[in-house]
């Protein structure tokens, strides 16, 4: 009698690799061949995983077409199957997979579109948290204020792309050929700050300085450090992040190691 562990490993071979022979010896012979029975499971699992990717990467699918997407998804599923039953978490590796997929080479911005859609998806499904009311900072004693650090809202994502993939995604999902034609693919890097606000996910484009500020802010830089790095702009930039709801809380950095 096969051990349950062996049988379950065999089913993984059936589902992921279509290796029906991994399980066929465990099934009785009858009028319907084991391959026909096992194919039902393989096809269902593949359809569920592909649909999960399709829901997260709709612009990628629109760019390559349904059949190409299904082909790429089948290969991706075999290479990087999900490790959790929460399929909303499945797909983090798809952008890099697409970047190395030979058949996708004619669309050099495809992986960036996938990176943008993954960030959008993460922002949309991140844990809920209240945003910090800026007035709460007034409770911090003046001498402690330089040591304030800010806790990002769980939905905040920073994204730097080599191509204007966000514009491509917007245009292709809107079916707007004129907007698509107007995109300058050589326009240089795009720097985006994404978060989920009251009305949904927002992706705000910013310049190099504002992006560097956001990076430092959400990496836990102190208020003093932020002001030192951008003396003229720090107040405005910080106020913008607070007003947008991108900050969930604050903490005071302890001066450990000092007398």
């Amino acid at each position: 009698m096969p051990k349950l562990r062996d049988l379950q490993a065999g089913f993984a071979e059936v589902v992921l690799a279509g290796r029906f022979d991994a399980l066929a010896p465990y099934l009785p012979a009858d009028a319907i061949p084991p391959e026909d029975r096992l194919a039902i499971y393989r096809n269902t699992a593949r359809a569920v995983m592909t649909e999960a990717l399709r829901l997260t990467f709709p612009a990628v699918e629109r760019l390559v077409g349904r059949d190409f997407f299904a082909m790429a998804a089948a290969r991706f599923v075999r290479q990087a199957p999900p490790d959790t039953a929460d399929l909303a978490e499945y797909g983090v590796a798809l952008p890099d997979f697409l970047a190395h997929l030979p058949e996708a080479a004619p669309i050099p911005y495809l992986a960036d579109v996938a990176r943008f859609e993954w960030a959008l998806h993460q922002a949309a499904t991140a844990e809920d948290a209240p945003s910090l009311d800026a007035d709460a900072l007034g409770a911090v004693a003046a001498e402690d204020q330089p040591m304030i650090t800010f806790i990002p809202h769980p939905s905040v994502r920073l994204l730097e792309l080599a191509t204007p993939a966000d514009a491509v995604a917007d245009a292709v999902l809107a079916g707007d050929d004129r907007a698509m034609a107007a995109i300058d693919l050589a326009a240089g890097p795009r720097r985006l700050v994404l978060h989920r606000g009251a009305t949904g996910v927002c992706a705000e484009q910013c310049d190099a300085d504002a992006f560097a500020f956001a990076r430092a802010l959400f990496a836990g830089a102190t208020l003093a450090g932020l002001v030192d790095a951008a003396p003229a702009a720090a107040g405005t930039l910080l106020a913008g992040h607070l007003a947008s709801g991108r900050i969930a809380g604050y903490a005071l950095q302890t001066q450990t190691g000092e007398p």
Binding site: L4, L7, V15, Y41, A45, P81, P82, D83, T84, A85
Partner: peptide
């Protein structure tokens, strides 16, 4: 079962 060896197999698979 729907997981094996840490992989989620995305279907409700039959047990012996």
């Amino acid at each position: 079962f729907s997981t094996a060896g840490g992989t989620y197999l995305a279907d409700l698979l039959p047990l012996p």
